[in-house]
């Protein structure tokens, strides 16, 4: 649920990049960080181990005016993908507004994708959230590699639910479809926000400098 501060007229949306270990969640955030002008974003905060593995989470704040009179802030998080850090994932998922599920397209990562997706659903369930009611998109990452599963199989594994969501073939290392996936999730959550808060009407986006 977005945090709305009527006093300071601010809305904060939280988007979480979820997925198995080494699927490219941090790379997504690094690319977004590298493409957005420093004027419009904060620093990328990354708590990683010496081996560049995400230890706690990555965090990137992006600011923009989207809704009338309200400063809208997007907070982008990643979770640690390694199985042992489930408590951290649960913490990061708290009050999540939208999810980009990053799947690793390599054949030998299929099981990890499925397990991570189930883990996402389970962790959302602990917060009484349903995946089917949450704005999310699927990003099939590492499509530039040779040993990758066909999209039809990834769709069968991860998008075979009653609600079929948008998916993106992506290469986070080059930025291919990184913003496209984030844009769609942002749009979905803004639509949802508008449905739930009809008094605040959408306006064309205009970025404003980070404070």
């Amino acid at each position: 649920m977005p945090i709305i501060n009527y006093a300071s007229k601010e809305i904060q949306f939280k988007v979480v990049y979820y997925g198995p270990a080494l699927c490219g969640k941090t790379t997504n955030l690094q690319y977004i960080h590298s493409r957005i002008s420093p004027t419009y974003r904060g620093d990328l905060i990354s708590l990683a181990t010496a081996a560049d593995r995400t230890l706690f989470f990555d965090f990137l704040p992006v600011n923009a005016v989207v809704l009338q009179g309200f400063k809208t802030k997007f907070q982008l998080y990643t979770v640690p993908g390694q199985v042992i850090y489930n408590t951290t994932r649960q913490l990061v998922l708290r009050s999540v507004d939208g999810v980009v599920f990053v799947a690793d397209s390599q054949w030998d990562k299929m099981q990890e994708n499925v397990e991570s997706f189930r883990n996402l659903e389970e962790n959302l369930g602990r917060q009484h959230l349903k995946l089917d009611e949450l704005p999310y998109a699927l990003q099939y990452n590492k499509r530039d590699l040779t040993e990758v599963a066909p999209i039809s199989y990834l769709e069968f594994l991860l998008n075979n639910r009653k609600r079929r969501v948008r998916y993106f073939e992506a290469v986070a290392a080059t930025g291919f479809n990184v913003f496209a996936a984030l844009d769609v999730v942002s749009q979905l959550l803004l639509h949802k926000f508008n449905r739930e808060h009809p008094t605040i009407k959408p306006m064309p986006a205009r970025a404003f400098p980070a404070e």
Partner: peptide, 29 residues
């Protein structure tokens, strides 16, 4: 052998809203 559910509802964005990421998405595209 990989049947998708027959009762699937495809999620659709009917009215696009510009987000802070739309411009970047277009540029990348």
């Amino acid at each position: 052998a990989l049947p998708l559910r027959a009762d699937q509802e495809v999620e659709e964005l009917r009215e696009p809203i510009d987000t802070p990421f739309t411009t970047n998405a277009r540029e990348d595209a």
